[in-house]
Design a binder for these strands. Sequence first.
DNA 1: GTCTATAGACTGATAGAC
DNA 2: GTCTATCAGTCTATAGAC
Lengths: 201, 201
Amino acid sequence: MTTDAAPTGYAKGRATREEILDEAMRLFGEVGYRTASLREVASRVGISHPGLMHHFANKATLLAAVLERRDEVDGLALQADLDAGADFFTALVRVAERNAARPGIVELYVNLSAEATAPDHPAHAYFRRRYADLLVQATQAFEAIEVAGRLRPGVEPRSAARLTVAAMDGLQVQWLLEDGDGERVDMAAALAALHRSFVTG
Amino acid sequence: MTTDAAPTGYAKGRATREEILDEAMRLFGEVGYRTASLREVASRVGISHPGLMHHFANKATLLAAVLERRDEVDGLALQADLDAGADFFTALVRVAERNAARPGIVELYVNLSAEATAPDHPAHAYFRRRYADLLVQATQAFEAIEVAGRLRPGVEPRSAARLTVAAMDGLQVQWLLEDGDGERVDMAAALAALHRSFVTG
DNA sequence: GTCTATAGACTGATAGAC
DNA sequence: GTCTATCAGTCTATAGAC
């Protein structure tokens, strides 16, 4: 009852909050966090910027809420694939597939992960944790392949994990830059090709 | 005579221009182009911001000059390796090796390539051209390997080229984020490992 | 070649009315 | 929950003195 079909008088606040997160995510993706302004986000939602700040005390809080929300949504989708019996790598390829249909998500992560390499960036700790977690998961997946005897000789799990995550990031930059081109990179296919070069047939 | 040991009265202007480019590159790397201010660049050089604008008419012109200069310097270094008989991939690994000693360059490219995915960014055309060129060069290098019969079965030159460039980009993000960690990724070694998984032994 | 001064616009954040 | 008004700070760029 409290999570869906909320009573009126508080339903409006919830809806506005969600709209703000949507538009903030879009704008952070377009121009990055630092360049985005609270006024522009508010204007896209159709409210004033103090109106926005009623929901989020300051800009960094808004960023944190955007990242938290993306983790929930995308994390659930990935987990659903894993629960359905997909191995980690297949689930990762499916993430790339889904992302190809939602440029906003790709823009958000490309822009923020670059910005957040600065130690004083409000999302710095978030991205350090995110990459550390991703690397652990990917390494374990390659270790499982190794145990199954399907890892190509000379391929190290940790190294393959790093390269997989790195390729995913780099492909997103190429994909964004190729907007408007005839030949745009197929991120999921490229990732699958990389995987084939790490495991035996 | 005009290129070195310039006569006084114009030597100062040259030196200041170079200093501005140095500091602009550093600051663009630290916070990105959009967030960087001419005042901050000028202050680091020790002049006022209208003083800076005597050398560069506007901010976008300064960015273009920074990129042009990096192309000259880094392009010469890479060409020197190629002229010394290195194949394209070995030269690329050496670029990664050199970059690991100069965080400023890595920061610059990570931040700018992400920012410049926006179609209206002043460096958008530059990065589109840069990636297109890189992909052509890398593809030709893998085609040469294929002709020599040393490409692993199932590996496509164009795909391997995309993954090589993508991995280089992605590794840079991981490397920057791991600043301060014990275990920081060895970009050159990771790139070499990737190459080994594309070519036969 | 570099400066001070300034124009004109934008920023995050706050106070206080409704 | 949203508004108007405002503060103090920042930005790019220009005008004009030296």
